[in-house]
Write a protein that binds this DNA or RNA. Structure first.
Lengths: 208, 208
DNA sequence: GCGGGTAATGTTCGTTTGAACACGTTTACT
DNA sequence: AGTAAACGTGTTCAAACGAACATTACCCGC
């Protein structure tokens, strides 16, 4: 699709963007490739834009838009504990961040997306391990079978939401853990949409 | 840490960056906030830079660097099949991409990072499911216990690499699958460093 | 050998843009 | 009352920058 030279130009723009944080100007591209004129650069930019590998804002400086930029990155906060529901999402409770493209997370526009670090093995039969980062979406319309984060006795727990004859309860995916039947209210904080596991390297692992 | 107004400016810059793909110029910021002078903007930029919320390239146009940009995003190609080892990584075999910040992947500088979509349940006891995206690093120094992608009979498989009395073999984490003892050569293509699971929504799921 | 896409040069134009200077105003804390 | 910091105006300058025009050369299929 692209000429060898066109690929070079595009990859230079992307590399610069990554390293410097800013797309290069036509003159910078010119200098890097040893062109005697900017027009050469302009021709390449035209070609790249025509072929859809580049976006441009006319008459603006350094206004190239590379495919890398087009990827929608969602910056998801990881909460250690959510005490009082989604209303009190303070920076205080943030343990860290995960950033990933919104296409791999099924992130919808309306609901807020957040993450929890899993503690314990209560969901091990759903193949969710201690230390996993579970990404959830702030939705109230959980369906039976969904894995949800819910507020029980002031603690946030990750369980499978099951509707049994019109009565919902929280099912632990581990026979060693009890299911939770809510006394009155079941407060769902989010529905699991994705999971990220950081594989520990051999050195940091306890057992093989 | 930041003044209310300073936060406004910063958030405007970030929003613009996201929507347009380019950081706004001082004049654009000026216009948006209704300042009669650019100097106001300059003062805010100075403050934001001083407090570490912004990076700047002196004397360059639209050369603001927001915290969002500073996150190192790794764009990882997902391969359906790796036929002949890491040398022949053509765009042909790319099934898609995952983008996530290099801090959650244990991405080292030297090795190339790539991903595979898992097929089958042979690693289910290592809690890796059919459809999961496994992120690997192109390393040759696999240690016993590491989960690796290896080339067996022209097919790439994901197995646990086990060294047994100086003899390596590939262990399936599912009693229904056989372990693979290499006839002569064991070609390791990568070592698993991370995992991403896209939770299917209720509608697209076959069984609860 | 003719046309058309690609590649490159040399030059000029007008705007966009960051930066600086001098000065005025409000807010908040001592 | 004093003062420092944040906030704001008005103006000017030089550099950075995108864009355009005319011109030349190469390569490849027909």
């Amino acid at each position: 699709m692209l000429t060898g030279r066109q690929k070079d130009i595009l990859s230079f723009i992307q590399t610069e963007q990554r390293d410097k944080g800013v797309t290069p100007s036509t003159r910078e591209i010119q200098r890097h490739f040893g062109f005697a004129s900017q027009t050469s650069v302009m021709q390449y930019l035209d070609a790249l834009e025509r072929k859809g590998f580049l976006g441009r804002h006319a008459r603006k400086a350094r206004a190239l838009i590379t495919p890398v930029q087009k990827i929608r990155i969602t910056d998801i906060p990881i909460y250690g504990q959510i005490p009082a529901g989604m209303s009190a999402l303070t920076e205080q409770d943030v343990e860290g961040h995960v950033s990933l493209d919104s296409s791999t997370v099924n992130a919808s526009k309306n609901g807020r997306t957040f993450a929890l670090r899993v503690r314990g093995d209560s969901m091990i039969e759903a193949h969710i391990l201690d230390g996993d980062i579970v990404i959830l979406e702030d939705r109230k319309d959980a369906q039976s079978g969904d894995i949800v984060a819910a507020l029980i006795d002031g603690e946030t727990t990750l369980k499978r939401y099951v509707m049994d004859h019109g009565r919902p309860y929280l099912k632990a995916e581990n026979p060693l853990f009890p299911n939770l039947i809510p006394a009155r209210e079941l407060r769902i904080q989010g529905v699991m949409v994705s999971l990220v596991r950081k594989q520990l390297s051999r050195a940091r692992r306890k057992r093989g």
